[in-house]
């Protein structure tokens, strides 16, 4: 059986015990959208695995009073773990279908490669190649060329938490350099980096799409970005306020962000804002040896208190 069939059958079997199952579906051959499966007939709309781009964990906090089935890829599973660790959702009300993931395709990249992608009628992936069917042509692309960026540096293709694994776990290959992009960026002069962020923040429209797409941003309606009491940000649309918001967002995710990349994907302006979160994540790794969303048993470093930190020299002894 193909993966999609395995998944469909697994969901069908569990559906009676659950309020709903979150997966991906829709008619667009290049993109799938979230699919809320409540009845068996909804299962017909299930999309193919290479389109499972979005991170469905973003819905968990608001649905926490329901009994939810959730399909996760490796990266999504880290968000689930982090939410569980932070006590934001409860394990018993969750059923996890774990999906070993070969990577998902980035529709924007396909659009760049194929002029008539807008009229695509089908997409199939076979042994490292992507076949895109349009009314006139069949295009064959290298999978690597159209994979989402985060898939290129993926270290956890297999879910780290699940109740049921769909298909076989994927052997994990050579782990690529984690922070090469950050190293390159930090090699730039201070002025160059400053200018880069000035320009990036100038373009930000402060729509909060990044925040809303973040599976760990659970404050939502009470986010300090919107709040008047306390009044952290004004409504001025200047660079300093927008930058302040981005820094706040990054700070609030330090040691929590699993780098699923949803913020960046959601940004209508295409701003490279994941870089800022990754910078803080690397700091956390170096200071506390901690990575978010890997292990249910460890405690996030910023959720504890100790008088002396091992790697922070607060005073000389």
């Amino acid at each position: 059986m193909s993966t999609i069939d395995l998944l469909r059958e697994a969901i069908r079997a569990k559906l009676p015990d659950l309020d709903m199952v979150l997966a991906w579906g829709g008619d667009d051959p290049l993109r799938a959208s979230p699919l809320f499966i409540r009845t068996e007939s909804d299962l017909e709309n299930l999309a193919a695995p290479h389109l499972y781009v979005s991170n469905l964990a973003v819905n968990l906090y608001s649905l926490r009073s329901k009994k939810i089935g959730l399909v996760v890829k490796g990266c999504d599973s880290r968000s689930v773990i982090q939410l569980l660790k932070e006590g934001l959702i409860a394990r018993p009300s969750l059923y996890i279908f774990g999906l070993p993931c070969e990577g998902v395709v980035d529709a924007a990249k396909i659009n760049r490669e194929i002029p008539d992608a807008g009229r695509a009628t089908g997409l199939a992936v076979r042994s490292g190649r992507v076949m895109v069917q349009t009314p006139e042509n069949e295009h064959i692309l290298d999978l690597d060329a159209v994979l989402a960026d985060r898939c290129l540096r993926c270290r956890y293709p297999n879910p780290l938490i699940y109740d049921q694994l769909i298909g076989e776990a994927i052997p994990v290959g050579e782990i690529p350099d984690l922070y090469q992009d950050l190293d390159e960026f930090e090699a730039l002069s201070l002025d160059a980096r400053h200018d880069f962020w000035m320009e990036t923040m100038r373009r930000c429209v402060r729509c909060y799409a990044c925040r809303n797409a973040c599976p760990l941003c659970v404050c939502k309606a009470h986010c300090v970005a919107d709040s008047r009491e306390p009044h952290w940000l004004t409504l001025e649309t200047n660079v300093s306020q927008k930058w302040f918001f981005q820094v706040l967002h990054s700070m609030h995710l330090a040691g929590r962000c699993t780098e699923c990349g949803e913020c960046e994907r959601a940004c209508p302006m295409g701003l490279p804002i994941l870089l800022m979160r990754r910078k803080l994540n690397r700091e956390i790794r170096e200071l506390f040896g901690y990575e978010a969303g890997l292990d249910l048993m460890t405690t996030p470093p910023l959720s504890t208190f100790s008088i002396e930190e091992e790697n922070i020299a607060e005073r000389e002894l």
């Binding site: 659970v218 009470h222 910023l302 959720s303 504890t304």
Partner: peptide
Amino acid sequence: AVRCVGCLKCLRTCP
């Protein structure tokens, strides 16, 4: 209480 999301991080960090 209106703002509190109940994550209890404060509880865990309070020395």
